[in-house]
Lab assay of single mutants.
Amino acid sequence: MSIQHFRVALIPFFAAFCLPVFAHPETLVKVKDAEDQLGARVGYIELDLNSGKILESFRPEERFPMMSTFKVLLCGAVLSRVDAGQEQLGRRIHYSQNDLVEYSPVTEKHLTDGMTVRELCSAAITMSDNTAANLLLTTIGGPKELTAFLHNMGDHVTRLDRWEPELNEAIPNDERDTTMPAAMATTLRKLLTGELLTLASRQQLIDWMEADKVAGPLLRSALPAGWFIADKSGAGERGSRGIIAALGPDGKPSRIVVIYTTGSQATMDERNRQIAEIGASLIKHW
């Protein structure tokens, strides 16, 4: 067993022997301040990774656009098919120029040779490549099948209805392509620590998230040296922004954090800054 596999296998073990965790309302004060600064709703939840206990939450059962955070769930569904012998990570998928959609920095470079399922998941999570996500959605049967996968996990809230990039439209009061912070946090925890996926697939999923290259201005910008984070960000229309993450000190994750916002007129930089400040408060009061 590799060191990384050992780390993920012992996530519940280490967490069980940690000192009790206590909620700190100071972080919620910052979440509410972010709402004021952005002029928009902000949803927040913080779960203990081992027990699933909610440590703090704000608007945990209000719907927010998922945006690209759905790509972690998508690759979880792909990995479940791999575990069941219905898919192979090494299978190569070929596609054409007509398949390319807006923001496809990886797939646009491989029109000639195609990409493997493993490479597509890596591109979808680490670079948020939209064509990679659409190609992977095709392998599982489309958005409705991802929703069905989530329902089978016990998540009857999260739903995907459309493809990239239309799913980022974020129309107010439109339930399409949305989740709730509580539902997303619980589902992410199941994917990373539950028995739904094999140990190898859980490790692969967290490795992809740990290698995320496009979430630097968010929670990662607030992390002290030595902290662990595996995350996936999302951005959408109407001032929408979000991030889902597993993080913790001492090089291992111990909490799940989900943050979503929508309806702001603020710039992307300002949305990023507010999420980073929430992260800084979380870490300060850990």
Rank of each mutant, 00 (worst) to 15 (best):
P181C: 14
T267I: 08
A246F: 10
V82E: 08
L146V: 05
G142E: 05
G226C: 04
Y44D: 01
L55K: 14
S51D: 13
L49H: 10
I229R: 01
D113R: 04
T158N: 02
R271G: 13
W286F: 06
A123V: 07
N152V: 08
E62H: 04
G154L: 04
Q88D: 14
T138L: 15
V101L: 08
A170T: 03
T179E: 00
T158I: 03
D36Q: 15
S281N: 15
S104Q: 02
G251Y: 07
R41M: 15
S80A: 09
V106C: 14
A133C: 13
V106E: 10
G251V: 13
V106I: 13
D129A: 00
S221C: 03
V117A: 12
G43D: 00
R92N: 14
V258N: 02
I259Q: 00
T147S: 07
M115F: 07
L191M: 10
F228T: 11
T116N: 11
T107N: 09
I243S: 02
S281M: 12
L199A: 08
T112G: 15
V72R: 01
L223G: 13
E56M: 04
W163Q: 11
L150G: 11
T131V: 14
A84E: 05
K32M: 08
M66S: 12
S240E: 11
A132F: 01
I256F: 05
R220F: 10
T139E: 15
F64D: 01
P224M: 06
L38E: 07
N50A: 09
I140K: 03
G141Y: 15
P217V: 08
P253W: 06
L28T: 08
I125F: 02
G248E: 01
V78A: 08
D83W: 02
A246I: 12
N272K: 03
F70L: 11
R63I: 15
H151Q: 06
A40D: 04
L150A: 13
K71N: 00
G76P: 00
T187L: 08
H156E: 08
S80C: 13
S201L: 15
H285G: 10
T187Y: 05
A183K: 13
Q204W: 04
L197E: 14
M209T: 03
A225I: 08
S128I: 01
Q88C: 06
A280S: 12
L28D: 10
D155P: 01
R241C: 15
L111K: 07
V214Y: 14
L120F: 05
V31Q: 00
D174R: 03
G52N: 13
L196N: 12
G85F: 12
Q204F: 05
A123P: 01
L191G: 02
P253S: 05
T147Q: 07
T69G: 02
R159F: 14
T178L: 03
I244G: 02
D231T: 11
S51I: 05
D250L: 04
A182C: 12
I275V: 15
D207H: 05
C75S: 07
L205H: 00
L199C: 12
E270R: 03
T112E: 15
I45W: 02
R255E: 04
R118W: 12
P105G: 09
L167W: 00
L120A: 07
N173Y: 13
T187V: 11
A132K: 00
Q86R: 09
I171C: 15
E56C: 04
G85I: 05
P217R: 10
W163V: 07
A246W: 09
D177I: 00
E195Q: 13
Q204C: 12
G234T: 00
P224R: 05
A225D: 13
R118T: 12
I243Y: 06
T158G: 05
D269H: 14
K32V: 07
T179P: 00
V78Q: 04
P105A: 05
A123C: 09
R241V: 15
G248H: 12
V257P: 01
L111W: 11
S51T: 10
L167M: 06
D48I: 08
D161N: 08
F70Y: 15
A235N: 04
N272P: 02
G251N: 15
S240R: 02
A34D: 02
A34I: 06
A148N: 08
V42N: 03
T261I: 10
L188P: 00
H151W: 06
M209Y: 01
S68P: 00
M180C: 09
N134H: 10
Q97M: 13
I229H: 02
L135R: 11
M180N: 15
Y260F: 07
A132N: 01
L49C: 09
D155I: 02
A148W: 08
M127W: 13
N152M: 12
V101K: 13
S80V: 08
R91Y: 12
A40H: 05
G242A: 09
V257C: 08
I171N: 15
L49S: 11
D177N: 10
G85H: 07
R159T: 14
K144I: 13
G234A: 10
A230M: 04
L188C: 06
H24Q: 11
W286G: 02
N272S: 09
S128E: 01
D83Y: 03
A185G: 08
D250W: 03
G141E: 07
L47E: 11
L218D: 04
M127A: 08
F58L: 14
H24T: 10
T178K: 02
E56Y: 09
R189H: 13
F228P: 00
L38H: 07
V72E: 02
D155M: 02
E166G: 13
R118I: 14
T27P: 14
G194Q: 12
T138V: 12
A77E: 10
Y95S: 03
M67H: 13
R271Y: 10
V31E: 00
R271N: 07
T267M: 11
Q97S: 09
L188E: 02
L247D: 02
H24R: 11
S80R: 13
A211T: 14
R202F: 14
L191V: 15
K53A: 13
R271Q: 09
G236D: 05
F228E: 08
T267A: 08
K144H: 14
D250F: 05
S57V: 12
D99C: 08
K144A: 06
A185E: 00
Y260Q: 03
S96R: 07
C121K: 00
L28M: 09
N98Q: 08
V42W: 07
W227N: 00
L282W: 02
S57C: 09
G39A: 10
L89M: 12
N98R: 09
R63V: 07
P253L: 04
G236L: 02
S221A: 11
A132P: 00
N152H: 11
A182P: 08
L167P: 03
T262Y: 05
K252S: 10
T178S: 04
S122Y: 08
D212F: 03
M127F: 14
H94T: 05
E62A: 05
G141F: 09
A133M: 00
A182M: 05
K32L: 06
S96V: 07
A34W: 03
P217Q: 13
D155Q: 02
H94L: 07
R273I: 05
R271P: 12
S128A: 01
L282S: 14
I275Q: 00
T131A: 07
L28S: 04
T193E: 04
L89F: 06
G263N: 11
S104C: 10
T107A: 12
D36I: 11
L136Q: 02
W208D: 07
S104T: 12
T178I: 05
A200R: 12
T267N: 09
R41E: 11
T193P: 01
G248S: 09
T139M: 12
S254K: 08
D129M: 00
H156D: 09
A280V: 13
M153T: 06
C121M: 04
